[in-house]
């Protein structure tokens, strides 16, 4: 397909630019790693005081965190749209995007990708294998395929939510702090939802379904059968939220007002 070939052209260009600024890239990967380490230490500190949290063991929590890193890193590499309003609406860069014969959201994904973040996939896998080993989990031949499916679902959940938020920019270009707040809420998805109260659990499942990025899909690999329904809903929820977001985006584009002049 045409889009795939455009995608690789951009990736090639991206790597070429990045390799000329090697120091930058190393700093970025390093700071990503540091950030992930801090999160892991937090989990370890919590479990320094207790071995079980609402029926989940320390290693299970670490496994969930490891899993969460994978879809999150994919999202972070391709959907850097947290500053969409500022960059594209207020500064009018959207004008340029709209004069090109490729879907506008796809162009923004391509322009804003940060492939360094994909390093988080490696960290996530390492963490999962470490925790999985301690838990004595076994891997079947079909598990890698299910893993890929669930990861894609989780990444689409994240993408859907953030795309939907970015479309607000088409209607109002005033500053909001909703994006950083949403990143914080996203973090709740990497802890088991039954440690929260019912309302929060409901919100994290059906309204801002971040639970489908971490805990629900991981429960499949942790063999927690009571959550299997949710685990397999992950790709469905991902696709539904993503499609809703793209629809909102397409409507938003028709409301675009252009910048000043």
């Amino acid at each position: 397909m045409e889009y795939i070939s455009i995608f690789f052209q951009y990736v090639g260009q991206y790597l070429k630019t990045r390799l000329t600024y090697r120091a930058d890239m190393i700093v970025e990967i390093f700071s990503d790693l540091l950030f992930q380490a801090v999160n892991l230490v937090f989990i370890l500190v919590v479990f320094g005081h207790t071995n079980l949290l609402a029926g989940w063991s320390k290693d299970e929590m670490i496994f969930i965190y490891g899993f969460f890193l994978v879809p999150f890193s994919i999202f972070a590499s391709f959907f850097n749209i947290w500053d969409f309003t500022d960059r594209y609406i207020v500064k009018g860069e959207m004008d340029r995007i709209l004069t090109r014969p490729v879907h506008s959201l796809f162009q923004i994904v391509l322009e804003r990708m940060e492939l360094e973040s994909l390093f988080g996939v490696v960290t996530g896998l390492v963490v999962m294998f470490y925790a999985g080993d301690k838990l004595g989990l076994e891997i079947s031949w079909y598990d890698p395929f299910i893993f890929i499916l669930l990861v894609i679902g989780g990444a689409l959940v994240y993408a859907g939510i953030f795309i939907a938020l970015a479309t607000i920019g088409f209607w109002s270009d005033s500053r909001t702090d909703i994006m950083p707040m949403m990143y914080n809420i996203g973090n709740y998805g990497r802890y088991p939802v039954d440690i929260y109260n019912k309302v929060i659990k409901y919100v994290l499942t059906w309204i801002l379904p971040f639970a489908f990025v971490g805990v629900y899909p991981s429960s499949y690999f942790l063999e927690r059968e009571e959550w299997y329904t949710y685990a397999f809903l992950t790709p469905v929820v991902g696709i539904v939220f993503f499609l809703i977001a793209v629809t909102l985006w397409n409507v938003g584009v028709t409301k675009y007002r252009g910048a000043g002049n």
Partner: peptide, 13 residues
């Protein structure tokens, strides 16, 4: 001017 050009180029509805 700009507004009409932007409509002619498909940027604005």
């Amino acid at each position: 001017k700009s507004t009409s050009i932007k409509m002619l180029t498909g940027i604005l509805t």
